[in-house]
Design a protein around this nucleic acid. Structure first.
Lengths: 343, 343
DNA sequence: TGACTGTTGTAGATCAGTCTACAAGTGGGT
DNA sequence: ACCCACTTGTAGACTGATCTACAACAGTCA
């Protein structure tokens, strides 16, 4: 009893033969197309069940649709991205589309490669979160397949966007901290290659808003932006530098929760010697709500954004031509990680 | 300047025409097949670059390979699954294969549907984590495409498995707790449909080991298994019932970290009135290591398991016929969430 | 009765690749 | 000069679906 050779699965021709109809007829039943009598539908479905037939998506993709929607994510570690996927998945329940996730290798900026991997696979639509990719490149992609970008404030006619109101969210954070009495508020965010050089990304907008609001509050001299690669070691070291250095900030506004968690870790490890440092995140991921973490954060409902991205994409697939740029309102959730500075 | 119609991308015929060679020749270059002169390779590659040509994976899938490996996951919320994916992704760097993730809708047990979605797409190999799926069904899948299952102790010749030594891991946990002086140790785990009814799954093995080890320690009377659906609300409520009920356990062994976090939350919310309850998890996810969480947990290196799964799958793709069942040794990481019971 | 319309099913082209079989060219050995 | 083996390139079948065009038939109405 050894492992058999790969079994040859049933094809549409087998179904046609068993049902005693033409291949085209089976195809019509499969696609629920016009011109099928009840009697035929029944015969065909019986044959499909009998053979355990499943259409090959590759073959379908040659002419028609693949009924596949691809979503590109920078990584799977950030719980906010899981929220997006879970929102997309639930919105897709009942639709004939399957969602597949292409994680961009966490190594170097592989967003382009991952998006291309999806279009190579003839997906019917793409959702992506690539801050580092050029708008013009995305417009080329959008010429070939419907595209919805998350977390980009791009002004374009070629694809749709779903994005939080990052300026408003940043304002919520800073007004909260300023209201508590903080003055030395640092902003820890991604490298300048995705903030300064990409002013249309979430993190670009957040950093710019931080600078503007601080200046407007008469705190131009206190502006302190720490741009770091988002791997935990680097973030940890940068935070320790902040804490141990001169002019220790009384509050750190981290550009997203995953960063904020590492900041919290560094602060906790520093102990009382590190002083009292408030920490605020962004995204309100589930872990921020945990009572042992209790991280103040801005909610922009990843679930909702993921669902809306699907809505827009399905619209595009259905033929919509004009662009839609949707902005999600942020909400501040105040928790224990932020409090008035001591003295 | 309105949105254009979808542009028609270059095909292999276009490349052949521009390069002045046959379609078959281009195909050879693409596949790096035998019988290509340097001169031709150069001409073809130049044409490919000029046209920005990318082969359609759908068309390739009709006869050859899709260079795609699919991984099915129950959900993306559990950070352990992210570890698996990230391990798989890094192992795949440099290989010509693209990884795509098919999340089984978090709703009802959709593992079968997600795995089928992958095979429908002609992936060259499948990695999956479906505890609730029948072994015989998986053997049918494995007859059509190389398959590696994670977290299953199945004894089968048809597919490979990568799994932690769950009995040993459970023993580490219980010896640790017993050594600290705990006697009333409860086990919080998934519903009986994936433990009792599926004794070959991680959680089935862990529950059985818990029962055996408790009995061997003369604590048969203290055995207390709480089987719950893994959504946070249910887990939270079940934990509160444990804490608030009679015979409050002094320790809770949660079947995985995600459950343990919710248990920690319920314990924290209960406050001092809830008594001193130690909590132990399983998987040693990154959040368990956070100093504010500091959850004692069993490490079985998701990164490593994901990487090994890819190794085995590539072996299978390369032609290996005999099964490999790989067992990963567990390691206990003791942290602050577990301590001696108070009196 | 004949023309017209609408429904139901089929034939056959088509999609973009891979793969097999083979022809043509090259070089060496005897 | 002839045979043989090897290298390089091509022709054309093939994959499993969808999609267009059309034939056959039934029913309606003048």
């Amino acid at each position: 009893m050894t492992t058999q050779a790969r079994t040859r699965a049933a094809t549409i021709n087998d179904v046609a033969r068993v049902a005693g109809v033409s291949r085209a007829a089976v195809s019509k039943v499969l696609r629920d197309a016009y011109g099928v009598s009840d009697a035929m539908r029944e015969k065909v479905n019986a044959a499909i069940d009998e053979l355990g037939y499943r259409p090959r998506v590759s073959a379908r993709g040659m002419r028609g649709a693949t009924f596949t929607i691809g979503i590109e994510l920078p990584n799977l570690d950030n719980p906010f991205f899981s929220d997006l996927v879970s929102g997309a998945t639930s919105r897709l329940l009942g639709e004939p589309y399957q969602l597949i996730v292409a994680p961009a290798s966490p190594a170097n900026a592989e967003g382009e490669r991952a998006i291309q991997a999806l279009t190579d696979r003839q997906v019917d639509g793409v959702i992506a979160i690539s801050p580092e990719v050029e708008q013009s490149w995305l417009e080329d992609v959008a010429a070939a397949v419907p595209l919805v970008m998350l977390g980009r404030h791009d002004d374009t006619r070629e694809y749709d966007t779903v994005v939080g109101d990052d300026a408003a969210g940043t304002r919520l954070v800073l007004e909260h901290l300023l209201g508590l009495g903080h003055r030395r508020i640092a902003h820890l965010t991604l490298p300048e290659s995705v903030t300064v050089e990409r002013p249309n990304t979430t993190h670009g907008v957040r950093e710019a808003a931080y600078r503007r609001i601080m200046a407007d509050a008469g705190l131009a001299g206190e502006i302190r932006v720490v741009n770091v690669e988002p791997d935990p070691e680097t973030v940890y070291a940068a935070t320790r530098d902040l804490i141990d250095g001169p002019d220790r900030p009384t509050a750190v506004f981290a550009a997203h929760d995953e960063l904020a968690l590492t900041v919290l870790r560094a602060v906790a490890d520093a102990g009382p010697a590190g002083g009292d440092v408030s920490v605020v995140g962004y995204d309100d991921t589930w872990i921020a709500r945990h009572p042992l973490i209790s991280l103040t954060s801005v909610n922009q409902s990843g679930q909702h954004m993921g669902g809306r991205a699907i809505d827009l994409l399905l619209d595009r697939v259905a033929g919509r031509k004009h662009p839609v740029h949707e902005v999600v309102a942020p909400r501040l959730l105040v928790r224990e990680s932020s409090r008035a500075p001591t003295a």
